[in-house]
């Protein structure tokens, strides 16, 4: 069984697509589609990797990332961020907050797969 990936994303079609891609590659994917409770979900699930959308209902991906980095338990957890807002300042903000990888939508499936493998596959 592959490693655990938690996908936090609110767009159903995108969830479906990523889930399909990763599952086919042998990853087990759980999803969460709301900003609220995202942290709790991470803490309870303890995934090997989090794929995090920026624009989420109730709590933005940036806030979630900050909270994850502030908590020693999750400070080192690999996080791959997805955003439809591809401006430079978004990427800069994400990097300041300690993101491991930042991918702009629309993405190519192979990029996602490569990034996930790079971030979580080695272990």
């Amino acid at each position: 069984m592959g490693k655990h990936v938690l996908l936090i994303e609110d767009e159903p079609n995108i969830i479906e697509a990523i889930k399909f891609i990763l599952s086919r590659d042998g990853w087990s994917v759980d999803t969460h589609s709301n900003g609220a409770n995202a942290i709790e979900r991470v803490q309870s699930m303890r995934p090997d990797l989090v794929i995090l959308d920026v624009m989420l209902p109730n709590k933005s991906g940036y806030d979630i990332l900050r909270d994850l980095r502030d908590n020693p338990m999750t400070a080192k957890l690999p996080v791959l961020m997805l955003t439809a807002r591809g401006q430079t300042k978004d990427r800069e903000l994400a990097e300041r907050l300690g993101v491991n990888e930042f991918i702009t939508k629309p993405f190519s499936n192979s990029d996602i797969l490569a990034s996930v493998r790079a971030l979580a596959g080695a272990g």
């Binding site: 995108i14 624009m55 439809a84 591809g86 939508k105 629309p106 190519s108 499936n109 192979s110």
Partner: peptide, 26 residues
């Protein structure tokens, strides 16, 4: 602009991703 970008990119993301899946066949 940021909003528009987001609103345009979101459907595009699904379209691209699924069209890649279909193209790859398998």
């Amino acid at each position: 602009l940021s909003q528009i970008s987001h609103e345009l990119r979101t459907p595009m993301t699904s379209i691209r991703s699924f069209s890649e899946i279909l193209r790859d066949g398998g």
